[in-house]
Simulated scan of single mutants.
Amino acid sequence: MKRENSTKLIAKNCVVEKVLKEENDKNILKSYRSLIIGLGAMIIQNGLYGTLVFLRAKGKRHHEFVFEDIRIFLEKKKYIKSKDVLEFLEQTDNLSLIQERVLEFVNWYRRYAEIFIKTSNEDDENN
């Protein structure tokens, strides 16, 4: 239970930080939310390493935000020992375990993105 609570808190903080930082740019938040919602499937289909390479290669702000949030999660949970996430994942023997933990994080990350980042359709429905 303790692991889940700290994972929830990290996910919540990542999303809330972006909402506060980008509150005036609804397009970035919408893209960020959309990317997070599909992130679990992307990791399952392409693997954690492949997903992170994709996020890094795209280089758009919302891709960078998600990459950085995953890096923060891995660092705070002490799953990585290097600032260079990709290099560390290339060399680790624990990639399956790390990917499993990231998928747990993504479940909470998606929930908080859906709670804190409203789309225009949701705003219309609430009025």
Rank of each mutant, 00 (worst) to 15 (best):
E22K: 14
L20R: 03
I44Y: 12
K26V: 05
Y32L: 11
I36H: 08
S34T: 15
V19E: 01
G59F: 10
K81W: 09
L39K: 07
I70K: 02
I70H: 04
R56I: 10
E104P: 01
K30D: 08
K12G: 05
K30T: 09
F54P: 00
S96E: 08
E22C: 00
A11P: 10
V19Q: 02
F73H: 02
G50N: 03
H62K: 12
I98W: 07
Q91H: 14
N46Q: 02
E68K: 06
L89R: 04
E64D: 11
S82Y: 05
D93F: 07
E64M: 12
I43M: 00
E100D: 11
Q99Y: 07
L48F: 04
Q99M: 04
K60H: 15
D69Q: 10
K12M: 09
D84V: 04
V85L: 02
L48Q: 00
L52A: 00
I28N: 14
I37D: 13
E100C: 07
K81T: 00
I43A: 08
L74V: 12
I80V: 12
G59K: 11
V106P: 05
V85K: 03
I28H: 15
E75L: 01
F65K: 07
L48A: 09
V106G: 11
L29Q: 06
K21H: 07
E22M: 12
H62M: 14
I98E: 06
G40H: 07
V19C: 10
R101M: 10
V15L: 01
I36R: 04
T51A: 09
K21F: 04
V102T: 08
T51M: 09
L103G: 10
R71T: 09
K26G: 03
I80T: 05
L52T: 03
A11K: 03
C14M: 13
F54A: 00
V53D: 09
D25F: 08
E17N: 12
L39F: 03
S31F: 15
T92M: 08
E64T: 14
S96Q: 13
T92Q: 06
L86V: 08
L29C: 06
K21T: 09
C14Y: 01
H62R: 14
A41M: 05
I37A: 03
L86M: 14
I37S: 15
Y49D: 06
L20M: 13
K81A: 01
L95N: 02
Q45G: 08
N94L: 14
L95D: 05
E87I: 12
F73R: 01
E17P: 00
E75V: 02
V16G: 04
I44N: 10
M42R: 05
R33Y: 07
Y79K: 04
D93V: 10
K77D: 06
F73Y: 15
Y49N: 06
R56Q: 14
R61M: 12
L55E: 13
K30N: 14
L55H: 12
L55Q: 06
E64R: 14
N13R: 05
F73L: 01
